[in-house]
Amino acid sequence: MANEVLKKGGEVTSEVWGETRGFDFEGMRFGVKAWRASASGARKGGVLSAPIVLVHGFAQQASTWDKVALSLSRTGVECFAFELAGHGKSARPTVGDVPGREAFDLDFQAQALLAFCEAVTHVAGRLPVLVGYSMGGRVALQAACLAADDLRDGGELNRISLRSSAAFAPCDRARRLDVAGACQQDVTANAARMSAAVPFSALVLESAGLGPADAASRGALRERNFAWAARVRGEGVSAFMSWWEALPLFESQRNLDDDQRERLRAGRLANDTESLALSFERAGAHAMSSQGESIRMLCELAAKGIPVSYLAGELDAKYCKVLADLRADSHDAVSCQAVPCAGHNIHLERPEAFGAILEEVVESCTPKPAAP
């Protein structure tokens, strides 16, 4: 199933295992990487596991998920990594046909992510578990807020689907797709198993902010993010990243081995100046829904039977505080877990522990096989 991704124009083509391809949304190309589920890890009774959609952090690419995704695929779980605007194989502002600065807007990327989750559902046959790390968690959270708004309004399920110029094939993967027609048919066919406007079965946030607490906080975050954008434009990527990786937030990453640190830095340096600057300006924390709105939305999703989990590394004091506040404010509606011996990037620093947590979430979202 994951060996097929959609290319521009709606054509479904075969993919080499792990190869990055594209997903088009309103003229913007987003990079996608897929890991097929191992046949040896298939579940008894032929039950399909819920797939996973993974969204990386600032200045990262889909490859940041390689270790976790490969491990999960061997247990029978399909994984799809979605690359944010200007990152990885996604279009950058210097490429001719990119729609412009608006493609970096938090809401635009959140809408594209919702469309991608629906596309994964069409091809995988199950609603995916949506996982977002740091900036990717911010986009995933904003996507959940948009979906929750639709849920309150009665669930306009096809609002997102029909805006995408590309989707995964629902059944016959050898033919071209009539995207609008296929999506419309799937809306009807999948109505019973889709949770209204929410195209994912669970939400996992890893070290993600929850939005500004108030107007003053929003203003301060905006000022900080625009200053960071000016800094990366003024200093260039290499000098900026030398400063960035020395922030206290990433102190625990100094314990990684040399090879891991080199790959991490190489990934950061693969970015271009303008994409990073626009990510700060257009998709920074100042652009999020308010913290109160985010927490109310997470509680609403949990009440609708969509599990919500929040993960922070025990060595990450800043986001452990976010975790503790969320646990209290959600009255335990959100599952909150601090992961031992990990800092800000849990899936990099503790991939086995992170993968085990995702396996539990997938298991909770996967129907049990029928009794013989």
Score class of each variant (00 low, 15 high):
171 C>K: 14
287 A>C: 09
370 A>N: 12
41 G>N: 08
223 E>C: 10
206 E>W: 03
52 I>P: 02
143 A>S: 13
28 M>I: 08
206 E>I: 08
264 L>V: 00
42 A>T: 10
253 Q>R: 10
214 D>E: 12
260 Q>N: 10
41 G>S: 11
75 T>Y: 04
81 A>C: 04
144 A>P: 01
108 F>W: 05
244 W>F: 15
206 E>P: 00
6 L>K: 05
25 F>T: 02
221 L>D: 05
366 T>K: 11
312 A>T: 04
301 L>A: 06
40 S>F: 08
92 R>I: 07
212 P>M: 03
80 F>N: 00
112 A>G: 11
26 E>G: 00
184 Q>R: 09
340 P>S: 14
256 L>Q: 07
46 G>Q: 12
5 V>D: 02
354 F>S: 01
74 R>W: 07
304 K>G: 00
48 L>G: 05
82 F>K: 00
255 N>V: 14
93 P>E: 04
32 V>G: 04
219 G>M: 13
194 M>F: 05
27 G>L: 03
130 L>N: 01
117 C>T: 06
114 L>M: 11
94 T>C: 06
344 H>I: 04
52 I>Y: 06
360 E>V: 14
252 S>K: 12
127 L>T: 08
189 A>I: 06
42 A>F: 10
90 S>E: 00
56 H>T: 06
57 G>C: 05
121 T>N: 08
